[in-house]
Simulated scan of single mutants.
Amino acid sequence: MSRIHLFEFEDQQWLPEFIRNYMTDFLQFLSNKTAMYKGIVPIIEKGLKESQTNQIIDLASGGGGGLIWLNTELRQNNPDLKILLTDYFPNISAFEHTQKNKPTISIL
């Protein structure tokens, strides 16, 4: 099977900001209201332990994704966990909402 090259619309500079923000807001809502990242929690915990760190730098965060939910799950075993959000086209209002709900999440 040959490779299919797809792209994310919200990563395109030509996409209007209000559409990009709507898309990242929806992704954040969906991922924080469901346990869609539940399976990745042990893998992230193992990575944190093996790298001997308590910090996650989330590249291309969009609007923060499921980090509100994920932060709560990961802090159960890593109470000093810090998460840094970054994005080329950040959804600032979503970042601020995430940081308001979880002060241990910061914005770059």
Rank of each mutant, 00 (worst) to 15 (best):
F7V: 10
F7S: 15
E8G: 13
E8N: 05
F9T: 08
F9I: 08
D11T: 07
D11I: 02
Q12P: 10
Q13E: 14
Q13S: 12
Q13A: 09
W14R: 10
W14P: 04
L15F: 14
L15V: 15
P16V: 04
P16C: 01
E17I: 09
E17F: 02
E17G: 12
F18I: 10
I19S: 12
I19N: 03
R20W: 02
R20N: 12
N21T: 03
N21V: 09
N21M: 03
Y22F: 15
M23G: 09
T24K: 00
T24L: 00
D25E: 14
D25T: 01
D25G: 05
F26L: 07
F26T: 13
F26N: 11
L27G: 00
L27S: 01
L27V: 04
L27W: 00
Q28V: 03
Q28W: 10
Q28S: 15
Q28P: 10
F29E: 05
F29Y: 09
L30R: 05
L30I: 08
S31G: 06
S31E: 01
S31C: 03
S31V: 00
N32K: 10
N32M: 07
N32G: 06
K33I: 07
K33H: 09
K33G: 04
K33S: 11
T34V: 13
T34I: 13
T34Y: 08
A35V: 13
A35I: 08
M36H: 15
Y37E: 15
K38I: 12
I40C: 13
V41L: 14
P42Q: 11
P42D: 05
P42S: 07
I44A: 07
I44V: 08
I44H: 07
E45V: 08
E45R: 14
E45Q: 14
K46Y: 06
G47N: 12
G47W: 06
L48S: 11
K49R: 15
K49D: 11
S51N: 10
Q52D: 14
Q52P: 11
T53M: 07
T53E: 10
Q55V: 06
Q55N: 05
Q55W: 00
I56R: 01
I56Q: 00
I57V: 10
I57E: 02
D58T: 02
D58M: 01
D58R: 00
L59M: 06
A60Q: 03
A60L: 07
S61G: 09
S61K: 09
S61R: 01
G63M: 01
G64F: 00
G65W: 05
G66T: 04
W69P: 04
W69S: 03
L70N: 04
L70V: 00
N71M: 06
T72D: 11
E73P: 04
E73L: 13
E73F: 04
L74N: 14
L74C: 12
L74S: 05
L74A: 03
R75S: 12
Q76L: 15
Q76N: 11
Q76V: 15
Q76I: 09
